[in-house]
Nucleic acid binder design. Structure first.
Lengths: 93, 93
DNA sequence: ACCGTCTATCGCAATTCTGATATATAGCAA
DNA sequence: TTGCTATATATCAGAATTGCGATAGACGGT
């Protein structure tokens, strides 16, 4: 067992940290969606960027998960990788 | 058959209009998701607004479909109505 | 080691969205 | 009609995101 995992389990018991973590998880999940979509399309960031009408650095930023991208950007990114965006509000766990 | 429907079918054959229409459809679909989530929660715009830490007018704007709300706002809105946001990039039709 | 390709990050101006207030409209009940 | 509640719209300053160039790191091939 990796010590990082132990640390994570312990920290998640802290409510304050937990809140932060959940918010971050949102961003990471989204970043994975993006990277996965681009991988399926077999395109580089630069190629997606050109199709979106923007630059490679902007695409890298979206995939970094350091910022939540706008809905408009998501739609453009999806189109560039041959996908469409689906946004659902499902019952919270 | 309503004449509006006939007009719509005809217009959708126009590629330029079609593009506009698809973009709008995106926003309307999202607005419906939001309104539906709030209806299930049986909350008013003002109640959701207070839970989101914003005002009734901001909630109305999100649901109007006249602007694409930010991802951050979607997350807050979902939480306020007892939901969570799911964003998926699926194969384009 | 050098080169070419792909990705990550920084800083700043420009664009877009948000928060807030005020006001308008619609429906309903007394 | 009056009053009350819920929703819609306008405006504007402030906040957040984007576009862009420059640059650095990572990786594989020669």
């Amino acid at each position: 067992m990796k010590s990082v995992e132990a640390w994570k389990r312990k920290m998640l018991k802290n409510p304050a940290f937990r809140k932060e973590y959940d918010a971050l998880e949102e961003e990471f999940a989204l970043a994975n969606e993006l990277i996965g979509a681009r991988a399926k399309a077999k395109l580089t960031q630069a190629q997606v960027a050109r199709r979106m009408g923007t630059t490679q650095s902007a695409v890298a930023r979206m995939e970094s998960g350091r910022k939540l991208p706008s809905t408009a950007s998501l739609v453009k990114y999806a189109a560039a990788t041959g996908h469409k965006v689906e946004i659902r509000l499902t019952k919270a766990r």
